[in-house]
Amino acid sequence: MRFLRTLLFLFLCASSFACAANKDYVITIETSHGNIVAVLFDDTPEHKSNFIKLAEAGRFDSTEFQRVIKNFMVQGGDVFTKENLPAQEWPTLPAEIRPNHYHKKGMIAAARQGDGINPQRRSSGSQFYIVIGKVYEELELTTDMAALQKAFMKYMELGSQAELKKQYTRLYNEQKYDSLTTILLSKREELEKSLNVKLTKDFTAEQIEAYTTVGGTPHLDKEYTVFGEVIQGLEVADAISNLPTQRDRPVEPVFMKVTVDKMSRKKIEKEYGYTYADEK
């Protein structure tokens, strides 16, 4: 009898664990422009746990999307300023920068201080941003523009490239920067062969597909912790990103209220059309 009770206990424990593993947290960010719904990633546990704790405690409520840049991102959740906590006491989180999470439009990432004073790239303990970005042409996306510019300048100094240098100077003086970019990109392959340099960036096929269709901010990859994704209401974040601003702050404040609900992953997939990474 004791053996049977032990088996039953172990079965119930296993069942409870399985049920818990099959559930997830759904984050809802309520604003006057509509609701933004998101999930947070399991492989960034410090960020996921911290965000949920802040939300469940109501600490995000009445914070703002206080930094808004069109075609870039919307940032908010400044809990510690709202709570009058001295800046030197603001908690931070260890970086959880994962190669499988990149800055596709709709991703949620943690704000942080710059490398100069934060070489470990620790995240803000509360502030986050939603990626907006833009859609890229593949050639522009996969080119190391800084390296290309440097190589191009060197190439123009060759006696055989006098006409190219003249064209570049004219367009620069006329401030036709888009035309300059087009010229630089058109010369990438030629420069790589002539100067024996690498002028490309390494992206996976998945990243290229995302950045050339949905869009995003690829230059932030490997720099900030991406820890969640919007699964409904991305148009709300778009609307906020297009608001009139003064010094990147919306002229009319955009306050938020953040709530957390736990539901089965199957229900999340059914209601929001979201597919978990381990099921893709």
Rank of each mutant, 00 (worst) to 15 (best):
Arg247Tyr: 15
Glu163Ile: 15
Ser124Val: 06
Phe41His: 08
Ser16Tyr: 15
Asp221Ser: 03
Phe255Asn: 07
Val37Leu: 05
Leu191Thr: 05
Val39Thr: 07
Ile27Tyr: 01
Tyr168Thr: 09
Glu89Arg: 13
Phe11Ala: 15
Asp261Glu: 13
Gln127Pro: 09
Gly106Trp: 07
Ile117His: 04
His101Thr: 10
Val26Asn: 06
Ala237Asp: 01
Lys201His: 00
Phe255Glu: 14
Lys154Tyr: 15
Asn22His: 15
Thr225Ile: 06
Glu56His: 04
Ser241Leu: 01
Lys280Cys: 14
Pro253Ala: 12
Val197Pro: 06
Pro244Glu: 08
Ala210Arg: 11
Val37Tyr: 06
Lys134Tyr: 08
Ile130Phe: 00
Arg122Ile: 14
Ala55Glu: 00
Lys222Trp: 12
Gln207Asp: 07
Val214Asp: 09
Gln120Val: 07
Glu252Ser: 14
Lys165Tyr: 11
Asp261Trp: 07
Asn22Thr: 13
Ala20Gln: 14
Gln66Pro: 11
Lys165Leu: 13
Leu243Ala: 03
Val251Phe: 10
Gln246Asp: 09
Gln149Val: 08
Asp78Phe: 13
Pro253Ile: 13
Leu184Asp: 03
Ala38Thr: 10
Tyr129Leu: 00
Asn50Lys: 15
Glu56Pro: 00
Lys262Trp: 09
Lys198Gln: 10
Ala109Ser: 12
Val74Asp: 03
Thr212Ala: 12
Ile130Tyr: 00
Ala18Asn: 13
Asn100His: 15
Phe128Thr: 02
Lys201Tyr: 01
Phe65Trp: 01
Ser126Pro: 14
Gln127Met: 07
Phe128Ser: 04
Thr259Lys: 05
Thr217His: 08
Ser123Leu: 08
Gln232Ser: 12
Tyr177Pro: 09
Ala87Gly: 06
Ala38Trp: 07
Arg67Ala: 05
Asp221Thr: 02
Leu148Gln: 00
Leu191Val: 06
Glu96Asp: 05
Val226Thr: 02
Lys270Asn: 15
Glu206Trp: 15
Ala237Ile: 00
Ser123Tyr: 10
Arg98Glu: 13
Leu141Gln: 01
Glu269His: 06
Asp261His: 06
Gly125Arg: 08
